[in-house]
Computed example of a mutant assay.
Amino acid sequence: MKAGVFITGTDTDVGKTWATLAWMRRLRADGYTVAGMKPVAAGCERRNGRFYNRDALLIQAACSSPADYAAINPYAFEAAMSPHLACGDISVDPERIAALAAALHATADWLVVEGAGGWYSPLDAALDNAGLARRLGLPVVVVVGMRLGCINHARLTVAAVERTGLRCAGWLAVRLSEAMPGFEGNLAYLQTHLSAPLLGVLPYRLEPDFTELGQHLCPPNWQMFDLRQNF
């Protein structure tokens, strides 16, 4: 099986990395080999002359096989701001990312790619997450941070994914607080009004156990992410 997913979000800080790592751990628990990427990251720390992103390091550690950090996070920027500002005069090349993605995918059954920010968040002056996802051609999963305003953000994001011409394979709800007022009502409304299926609800956690979080995923069929015709 060759399968993959591009994980995007309704905004920044809605739980994309937790969802990505939970997805990877669940896949491994289900017997698949998995490779992961966070192609573009800002707010990175310099170590030994290179920039490293904490979330990308976690993705690297979650891969089934050892992978070079530069392949997992080829564009790492120091400034903690939108990548299109943090990148300076560096251009993010989607062809380079696609080549690295194909090489990583060759080592595993699954490729899991985490975007940066929301669907239309810019990665440089010309490229945004939607453009990168279109180039990679992966099914998309939308992470919905459950908070006030999430209904509008979720409906707009799923509609935008579909307008891009990619398949929105589903969405994940992430509890961002222990006691969101109206959580169940908001969740029920989204299940009724989003065209894509709910693939899981990640509970609120102060400290994540990604293996445990992975057990809260309920993808209807892993085969729906099969990419054998694309790779």
Rank of each mutant, 00 (worst) to 15 (best):
K2T: 07
A3H: 03
G4F: 10
F6R: 09
T10C: 03
T10V: 04
D11Y: 05
D11I: 13
T12D: 11
T12Y: 07
G15W: 03
K16T: 09
L21C: 04
R25G: 00
R25Y: 00
R26K: 14
R26Q: 14
R28M: 09
D30H: 02
G31P: 04
V34R: 04
V34C: 04
G36D: 02
K38S: 03
K38F: 10
N48L: 06
N48T: 04
R50W: 05
R50M: 10
Y52S: 02
R54H: 15
I59N: 10
A62V: 09
C63W: 07
S64H: 03
S64A: 08
P66T: 09
P66W: 14
A67I: 05
E78T: 08
A80W: 05
M81C: 15
S82D: 03
S82M: 12
P83W: 12
L85I: 15
D89W: 01
S91W: 03
V92T: 03
V92L: 01
P94V: 04
E95R: 13
I97H: 05
A98N: 11
L100S: 11
L100Y: 03
L100Q: 14
L100N: 01
A106F: 01
T107E: 13
D109F: 03
D109A: 06
L111W: 03
V112F: 06
A116C: 14
G117C: 11
A125F: 05
A125C: 10
A125P: 00
D128G: 08
N129P: 10
L132D: 07
R134F: 02
R134L: 13
R134P: 00
R135I: 05
L136R: 11
V140Q: 08
V142G: 04
V144L: 12
G149K: 06
I151P: 05
V158Y: 03
A159Y: 00
V161I: 07
R163Q: 15
T164N: 06
T164K: 01
C168L: 11
A169F: 09
G170N: 12
G170A: 13
G170M: 10
R175M: 15
E184R: 15
A188G: 08
Y189N: 07
L190N: 03
H193V: 07
L194G: 13
P197N: 14
P197S: 15
L199R: 14
Y204L: 08
L206D: 14
F210N: 01
E212S: 09
L213K: 01
G214E: 02
P220K: 10
N221K: 12
W222V: 01
Q223F: 13
F225K: 05
D226K: 02
L227A: 10
Q229G: 12
